Amino acid sequence: MKTYVLTVFTKTGEKLLDESFTAENNDEAKKIGEARLAEEGLSEHTHRCVSPEAKMILFHR
């Protein structure tokens, strides 16, 4: 399992969500990240999900 980081920001740069979670691979992490954003109602805010190798696997601006 790898640890991924999901971060969500307001337009002014304030962090609304900053959490880590584990997943088997990037595809699974993307699904988990998208589900978490939907749960919190944050899908339309600026967000990113980064892999342990610092690869951005999910991004919205």
Rank of each mutant, 00 (worst) to 15 (best):
R48V: 13
K30W: 11
C49F: 06
R48C: 12
P52F: 05
G13T: 07
V8T: 07
D27A: 13
L16Q: 11
T3E: 15
H45I: 01
A54H: 13
H45K: 10
S20E: 15
A35S: 13
L42R: 01
E34S: 08
E39I: 07
L16G: 07
H47F: 04
A23N: 02
T7S: 09
E40Y: 04
E19G: 06
E39L: 02
S51E: 01
P52N: 02
L58Y: 05
E40Q: 04
K15Q: 04
G13K: 05
S51N: 08
M1W: 00
E28I: 11
K31N: 11
E53T: 05
F59Y: 14
E53D: 15
D18N: 15
G41D: 04
A54Y: 15
K31Q: 14
S20W: 10
K2N: 15
K15D: 06
K2C: 14
T3L: 12
T46V: 10
A23M: 05
F59E: 12
T7I: 11
T22Y: 05
T3C: 13
L6R: 03
D27T: 12
K31I: 14
V5N: 12
F59P: 13
V8A: 03
A35N: 09
K31F: 14
K55Y: 10
A38I: 10
F9C: 01
S51M: 05
V50G: 02
A23T: 05
A38S: 13
V50D: 04
R36N: 03
L58G: 00
M1N: 02
R61A: 15
L37R: 07
L42S: 01
A35V: 02
L42N: 08
I57C: 02
L6D: 09
K15G: 05
K11H: 11
T3A: 11
D18Y: 13
T46A: 13
G13P: 01
